[in-house]
Amino acid sequence: MTNRIYPKSHAFESTKYAISTTADIQCPPPSPPPPATLTVWRKSLLFNCKGFTVFDAEGNLVFRVDKYDRSDKGEIVLMDAAGNPLLTIRRKKLSLGKHWEIYDGEESVNPRFLVRKHVNFLQLKSMAHVTSSDGGLVYEIEGSYTQRSCAVYDERRIAVAEIRRKEEVSGVDFGLDVFRLIVQPGFDAAVAMAFVVLLEEMFGSRSLAISTR
């Protein structure tokens, strides 16, 4: 880039000038990327299926969950727009709906996350604990899923994902079946959506009818 030349001072009648290079210019740090805002529709695009359909801010399909009513595999698969499996959610055997496992792809060993439904009437805000396979606490989910107002917090108590009601458009209230999933940069949107599926199973008005293994 060509150096830009500026007079040192208007008060001095001198032919000396100061040269300012790009190294002298203090550029502001780059702005962090904005969070991803997904629109979650609590409905499968397939006939006779329960599930979710998820769109990005441009209206592109990004995630799908399709659960046939008569399926008894005891699992839910989160897929991308093309139907490729991203994560598989399974209820832990004999857990009575309180313990769940999240696997990469369609794997059945070495779960990526273990999720436990939190039932404590003294801590109404806490809904679920998420741990890694070695038992270390990773995330905690707090708020109210039934009101579509909750957040996923990491170990530093920073919200990495949030569920919010979708704003009215031209006076149209979308109710509880369409809502926002806001994912902060650096957090896996697929994992955030898997948490949404689990919250639906734990606290939703109608579940995806997962059976135990």
Results as ranks from 00 to 15, higher is better:
Pro34Phe: 02
Gly135Cys: 00
Glu107Met: 02
Leu38Glu: 00
Leu124Gln: 06
Asn120Arg: 15
Lys117His: 07
Ala36Leu: 02
Glu101Leu: 11
Gln123His: 08
Asp69Arg: 14
Cys49Thr: 13
Ser95Tyr: 02
Glu58Asp: 03
Phe113Cys: 03
Tyr68Gln: 15
Trp41Thr: 09
Ser133Asn: 01
Trp100Cys: 10
Leu45Phe: 09
Val119Asp: 13
Met127Asp: 05
Asp66Thr: 13
Arg112His: 03
Arg112Gly: 02
Gly105Cys: 03
Val54Trp: 04
Lys98Leu: 10
Thr53Met: 09
Gly51Asn: 12
Arg91Ile: 14
Gly105Glu: 05
Lys92Gln: 10
Lys93Glu: 05
Arg42Met: 02
Arg64Ser: 10
Pro35Ile: 05
Pro85Phe: 11
Gly105Asp: 01
Phe121Ala: 10
Leu45Pro: 10
Leu122Phe: 11
Asn84Met: 13
Asp66Val: 11
Asp80Ile: 12
Lys43Cys: 04
Pro34Lys: 06
Leu94Met: 14
Val62Arg: 04
Leu122Tyr: 07
Phe55Asp: 01
Arg116Leu: 07
Leu122Cys: 05
Ala128Arg: 07
Ser95Gly: 06
Val54Asp: 01
Gly83Cys: 12
Pro111Ser: 03
Gly74Glu: 12
Ser44Asn: 14
Phe47Lys: 14
Ser95Lys: 09
Leu86Glu: 11
Asn48Gly: 07
Leu87Tyr: 09
Lys93Asp: 03
Thr53Gln: 06
Ser126Met: 14
Leu38Pro: 00
Thr37Lys: 07
Lys73Leu: 08
Phe47Met: 12
Lys92Ser: 06
Ala36Trp: 00
Gly135Trp: 02
Leu38Thr: 01
Ser132Arg: 08
Val109Ser: 04
Arg64Asn: 12
Gly135Phe: 01
Tyr68Asp: 15
Asp56Val: 01
Asn84Gly: 10
Asn84Phe: 08
Asp56Asn: 01
Ser71Trp: 15
His129Cys: 10
Arg64Lys: 15
Asn120Trp: 07
Val119Phe: 09
Leu61Ile: 04
Ser126Lys: 15
Gly59Ser: 04
Cys49Gln: 15
Asn48Tyr: 07
Phe63Thr: 06
Pro85His: 09
Leu61Met: 04
Arg42Gln: 03
Met127Thr: 04
Val54Leu: 03
Gly51Tyr: 08
Gly135Lys: 02
Arg112Met: 06
His99Leu: 02
Asn60Ile: 02
Leu61Phe: 01
Lys67Glu: 08
Leu96Ala: 14
Glu75Gly: 14
Leu38Trp: 00
Lys73Ala: 08
Lys98Ala: 13
Val65Asn: 14
Glu75Tyr: 12
Ala82Leu: 08
Gly59Ile: 02
Leu61Lys: 08
Leu114Met: 07
Arg64Gly: 05
Pro85Arg: 12
Glu58Thr: 02
Leu96Lys: 15
Gly135Ser: 00
Thr39Ala: 02
Val77Asn: 08
Leu61Val: 05
Val65Pro: 12
Glu101Trp: 03
Pro85Cys: 09
Asp80Pro: 02
Asn110Cys: 00
Tyr103Cys: 01
Asn110Asp: 00
Phe55Tyr: 00
Gly136Cys: 09
Lys67Gln: 15
Leu38Ile: 00
Asn48His: 12
Lys50Val: 06
Glu75Ile: 11
Arg112Asp: 01
Ile102Ala: 03
His99Gln: 10
Leu122Ser: 08
